[in-house]
Design a protein around this nucleic acid. Structure first.
Lengths: 138, 138
DNA sequence: TTAAACGGAAACTGTCACCATAGCCTAACC
DNA sequence: GGTTAGGCTATGGTGACAGTTTCCGTTTAA
């Protein structure tokens, strides 16, 4: 009997793929923000990096999470976009550029998920901030 | 070896869509002429009826026939228009109305395909008819 | 020997950019 | 007065392309 057994497989291959996928997009987005890359990954690029077929990636992510790969990618991009919009120094166009959108598409993309345009989102954010400050000073 | 095989699929899904598309526009135009409907179908309406995406409809028709969906739609409308114009009772404007055009656009539409305006077409048609009759009476 | 992993074709959904033109009005022309 | 042309703008259709889903065939490992 072997005294040492391999650690029990916590995740099946499916979950390994899912975890790897999430790591890859996190790393890629970090690279994008740091300016180390300037092109947005496509699903094909991620599948290539994981050495599996794009269709198989799509199927596996959907199977383990109930959501398609794009969902997570887009969610993370939205989180970054919202965060950058709270910085009044950055123009909407420059944020769009960093996220590899052309300005027009960035607005469409953002509005589709957030319901409001980037500019509206920024304005509402600062209005809310001002109200908070007033609460303190009164 | 199976003695009975299913009949070989003659038409792939693509051809099924194409056939259905042609049926739908035929039926719709018949409805229009009979006054059962007064609005011209758009590609979206046909796609809805076939339960597929408009883009997919467009791409599939183009793939199987080499022509875009509009081509067939417009061809059939032109056939109807030419036929109605041979009836001297119907004014050009009333024909336009039945085909859901405003008079000005109908002329433009007709000329684009036929090279001549509706009125010219009608006149040439009757001139040709008269010549035929003269041939007989001489 | 069988169930998961994987490859891959085909059908389908969806977005975007481009542009021809329908729609609408006015004006000109038989 | 019915027909046609001109001019403007909003928009529908298209073609290209990315992604998803379904389905099935192979391989692989237990």
């Amino acid at each position: 009997m072997a005294a040492y057994t391999l650690p029990k497989k916590i995740a099946a291959r499916q979950h390994e793929i899912t975890a790897d996928f999430l790591m890859v997009i996190d790393r890629h987005l970090a690279d994008l923000l740091a300016g180390r890359v300037t092109e947005m990954y496509e699903i094909r690029d991620i599948a290539d990096e994981l050495h599996i077929h794009p269709t198989h990636l799509s199927n596996t992510i959907k199977l383990t999470t109930g959501q398609a790969p794009c969902y997570f990618f887009e969610e993370k991009i939205m989180t970054i976009a919202r965060s950058m919009l709270t910085d009044p120094q950055q123009s909407v166009a420059s944020i769009a550029a960093i996220l590899t959108f052309d300005p027009s598409n960035f607005t469409k993309f953002f509005k589709r998920f957030q319901g409001v345009t980037p500019k509206q989102y920024r304005e509402e954010y600062w209005r809310a901030e001002r109200e908070k400050t007033e609460m303190l000073t009164i």
